[in-house]
Amino acid sequence: MSFLNLVEGPLFTFAAAVFVLGALWRLIGIIRIGRAKDISPPKASAAAGFIKGNLRHFFPRGIFAKRTMVHIIGGYGFHLGLFMLVFFGVYHIDFLNERILGFSWPALPRWAFLLTSAVAFSGLITLWVRRISDPVMQLISDKDDHIGSWLTFLVMLSGCFALEQAHDSLRGVHMLLVDIWLIYFPFSRLMHSFTFFLSRGQSGMTYGRKGKVR
């Protein structure tokens, strides 16, 4: 079996299984703890608060937006960019179509794909250099933060390196990094891509019940 077949075949299947099962296990583990009882009479709906909390925090607040502008732009650029690359890059759609889903959808044209990559890379680099150049960030960051950023960066970079599609080995390296990323994901802070809705939602519930979602 060639290297490429390994990392796109059995190893990918294994990594994807770890990703799905691990992430589910962790999400269920968090939810299973259960919310503490709130004995005060509710002023408004907690469920609506869950949704409000989730929506509210997509938008920066005016008074703070200016101070955190670099972070907001970098963050949105990176996350939206990566989302577009993963789900609307033609290679990714083909891969998902052939390996997993069995259907496909329209892809970004090449120029848009490259432009999106540039935005996503810029965002990720901005977020990480901010992490290393600020005392607050240095204090609260741990190994996981750096490993997560770098693994994601390397996955993206190796993907970019393989763009000519002339060498199986480059595609193989990209896929190997994807596999490692998938396996690392559920055990790390990368999980924030799923846990964010629990966190926003539950604080929304608490405050929603009191009648004011923050």
């Binding site: 490259l114 990559s117 970079l157 970019c160 480059l170």
Partner: peptide, 8 residues
């Protein structure tokens, strides 16, 4: 690889 990276 370097060419693609450099161009991007």
């Amino acid at each position: 690889a370097a060419m693609q990276g450099h161009n991007l």
